[in-house]
Design a protein around this nucleic acid. Structure first.
Length: 763
DNA sequence: ACTACGAGACTTTTT
DNA sequence: GTCTCGTAGT
């Protein structure tokens, strides 16, 4: 058999993989081997000579998915995947815009704003325009701008019939002007810019259309309108689009995803083949039956029913708790039982609809001494110390970047207050120059703003020293010379931040090493991303194209010396890939996350919590059209995460926003056939055996009784510290080596202490 | 320039 | 309940 990787595929999967050259829609249910089909399809196309690695484009939503695809592909085929156009929408657009920045009207070193950068840019703009932030909240402005762009609309194209919208439109317009001035691009702009570039520039578009004869899209149900239009533009007459998705797992409508794209795709591309992958390799029958029955309540589905060749398995366990605390206590007990059965903690997940629910669960797990990991906190490149360091680096790369300058002009504090800043901004505006340039004039001008002059001089020195240095050394130098290191050294909570800054240097070293490895393969650098260098037989047309028709993009970035290119590439990397969510991967710990975050993952056992009206489905979903259906799809996603065992629980009352809320049982539970559910414990039965939990009169005693013997620390525990004396544990955070507790001391106030280091003794 | 206090939010989130 | 943000006060 010529295609060994086709082995082990079921008939539908195989049909999808070996489809002829035509556009197709693959409806891939949860756990049906979607990623496998997608990657095997690519391997098949290449192996059978229907496509070259160069001639296909594969799009995903997350960097993780793109990496996964690349990893699997290189395991299947001995090809160099690094130069291939496999990536996220944003990553690929970035690549396009870097290569053709001049045609796109962007500077070679344009910087990318993440959402928090964008928000501060908007706040700054609102102040400059004297727009009332009460009436036009920055967040709302941000949403207005982004959702307009996601629909493919520029400010001029927005329909504004009322004064409010007209003002929004005005801000939108000014915002884009500001970005252009400062040489920065937000996420939505990456897409819109490259869309506009491709639709305006016929030669360029035709070039890419001729190149990409196959376009493969993952998670197609999550595409927004602009992304779909972008794909349509890139798909020329001879292009086959292979779209994989699951309308039942569309849970991102709230951020612009348009499931309707699936039907439109069928129509627009005259799709002959809709292949359904319905065989599920993940879950036992009862779990799938529950998911199928639930999702059946949605209207307008493309239609799909999951099945498995495995048995029905265990029933779904349903637990009714009196309170959220009791719910948590039950989960702790069951987790311990699972652990005793030999289930790895990493294979157990606790899911919730909203982040606010995690607290109670964390407390219970902590008290029980069960290690846990919460997904969804700050990520590496979002940390303030990292953003500060990156802002200095951005200023080295591009002097126009006012946002970066404002971030660090007085951090660490160097005596530049609001007044001198205002003067600087006025001066810059008057002369029509960037803040950086205005600051430099203060150096030349001599007296006046000496603090600002010193700052500008420091930046100049920074640039000077970094010039020609390898990237990691540049960063090291910036961290020291900017005073960031000193600042965090003198701050009492600064140790961790220093460590992160150190980690930034390591990350840069790793990044450079990886890129050098690519380069030595004779590949495209990530910056130009695939243009300019002849690699395989198709490339000479491309090289000719780049130098004859659109030489500028390439030539100018190639003319940059290596360290500068490295810096730019690293800044892009930092913006586009905010870093791993997991702090301590590989550590045996129960996984806590929202249902959204669980999409794409699977676990042996899943606890699905908070099945109460108002929480799940969430109250706020009621206003939105299709809101309830999206909540139901969310529930569907949650159920299908479980391989073997699924627990569903709800609480009769729970603490929410500082007060008790009494929720009815979620309607979703009525939509699951009763015979699939087994009530494991009524509230009364459970509270009788664990009566301490239900006793509201003695919460401290209740908590104490819950503490596992294997953990000496829990809430209400009286402790003693050699320096601070006697106190009581009032809060906790983290687990394992990173566990910290907050102790309220009798005479020394409250302190956060790392359990690993603090010499605490139980009393 | 830094701290302190009060007001208001608060569903989900990748890039 | 708890966190963030912005302003007012020292």
């Amino acid at each position: 058999m010529p295609y060994p990787f086709l082995h082990g595929l079921n008939p539908e999967q195989r049909a999808a993989v070996t489809l002829p050259h035509e556009s197709a829609l693959i409806l891939a249910g949860a756990g049906s081997g979607k990623t496998r089909v997608l990657t095997t399809r690519i391997a098949y196309l290449i192996q059978s000579g229907q496509a070259t690695p160069h001639g296909l484009l594969a799009v995903t939503f997350t960097n993780k998915a793109a990496k996964e695809m690349i990893a699997r592909l290189s395991a299947m085929l001995p090809i160099n995947t690094r130069g291939m156009w496999i990536g996220t929408f944003h990553g690929l657009c970035n690549r396009l815009l870097r290569a053709h920045h001049r045609e796109a009207g962007l500077p070679a070193l344009f910087q990318i704003l993440d959402s928090s950068d964008q928000l501060s840019a908007i706040k700054r703009l609102l102040k400059a325009l004297n727009v009332d932030e009460e009436k036009y909240p920055p967040k709302q402005v941000q949403h207005f701008i982004n959702s307009s762009k996601d629909e493919g609309l520029r400010a001029e194209a927005v329909e504004a019939y009322d004064p409010f919208t007209r003002q929004m439109q005005e801000v939108f317009l000014e915002y884009d002007k500001q970005c252009q001035r400062e040489g920065v691009v937000d996420f939505a702009e990456l897409l819109l810019r490259s869309y506009e570039l491709l639709s305006r520039d016929n030669a360029l578009r035709e070039h890419y259309q001729n190149r990409f004869r196959h376009i493969l899209v993952d998670e197609f149900q999550d595409t927004n309108r602009l992304q779909y239009r972008w794909l349509k533009l890139l798909a020329g007459p001879g292009c086959a689009m292979f779209a994989v998705g699951d309308d039942d797992q569309s849970i991102y409508a709230f951020r612009g995803a348009h499931v309707g794209n699936m039907r439109e795709f069928e129509r627009d591309f005259a799709v002959q083949q809709v292949i359904k992958l319905e065989q599920n390799y993940r879950s036992h029958g009862n779990i799938l039956d529950a998911a199928n029955a639930l999702i059946h309540h949605n209207n307008g589905r493309l239609g799909k029913n999951l099945w498995t060749s495995e048995g029905s398995g265990e029933p779904i366990r349903l637990f009714e708790a009196a309170t959220d605390q009791e719910e948590a206590a039950y989960i702790v007990d069951e987790t311990k039982a699972l652990q005793r059965e030999g289930i790895a903690l990493t294979d157990i997940a606790i899911l919730y609809r909203s982040n606010a629910q995690s607290r109670v669960l964390e407390h219970a797990l902590f008290s029980a001494g069960l290690p846990y990991r919460v997904y969804g906190g700050l990520r590496f490149f979002e940390r303030q110390e990292i953003k500060h360091a990156l802002a200095y680096l951005r200023l080295i790369a591009s002097s126009e970047d006012d946002g970066a300058l404002l971030r660090v002009i007085n951090f660490p504090a160097r005596g530049i207050g609001a007044r001198s800043l205002e003067q600087l901004q006025d001066a810059a505006k008057q002369r029509g120059v960037s803040l950086y340039e205005a600051a430099c004039m203060k150096v030349l001008g001599g007296k006046g703003g000496t603090a600002i002059g010193n700052f500008a001089a420091m930046l100049e020195a920074l640039r000077e020293t970094c010039h020609g240095l390898p990237l990691p050394e540049q960063i090291e130098h910036v961290i020291e010379a900017s005073g960031l290191a000193q600042h965090y050294r003198s701050e009492k909570e600064g140790a961790e931040r220093l460590e992160n800054l150190n980690e930034l240097v390591n990350a840069a070293a790793g990044f450079v090493a990886e890129n050098e490895a690519q380069r030595s393969f004779g590949e495209d650098s990530p910056v130009e991303g695939g243009l300019g260098r002849s690699q395989n037989e198709e490339d000479h047309s491309l090289a000719a194209f780049s130098s004859d028709v659109t030489p500028s993009g390439l030539v100018s970035s190639e003319s940059l010396e290596l360290p500068k290119r490295q810096l730019q590439a690293f800044l892009t990397h930092a913006a586009l890939e905010s870093g791993e969510r997991q702090a301590e991967a590989g550590v045996a710990a129960v996984q806590l996350m929202t249902v959204h975050a669980a999409k794409g993952l699977e676990f042996h056992a899943v606890f699905l919590t908070g099945l109460e009206e108002g929480l799940f489905p969430h109250d706020n979903s009621r206003n939105e059209s299709d809101g309830l259906e999206e909540e139901r799809r969310l529930m569907y996603v949650a159920i299908t995460r479980a391989r073997r065992r699924l627990y569903i629980s709800y609480a009769q009352s729970r603490m929410l926003h500082g007060q008790f809320r009494y929720g009815l049982v979620s309607r979703f539970l009525d939509e699951i056939p009763a015979q699939l559910l087994k009530a494991v414990n009524t509230r009364r039965a459970y509270t009788e055996t664990q009566s301490a939990w239900a006793s509201p009169s003695a919460p401290a005693a209740a908590r104490r009784s819950s503490a596992a013997p294997d953990s000496p620390w829990h809430f209400g525990q009286n402790v003693s510290h050699p320096k601070f004396g006697a106190g009581v544990i009032i809060n906790c955070e983290g687990s394992g080596a990173e566990a910290r507790v907050e102790v309220k001391f009798r005479n020394a106030g409250s302190k956060w202490l790392a359990l690993e280091y603090a010499k605490l003794t139980a009393m």
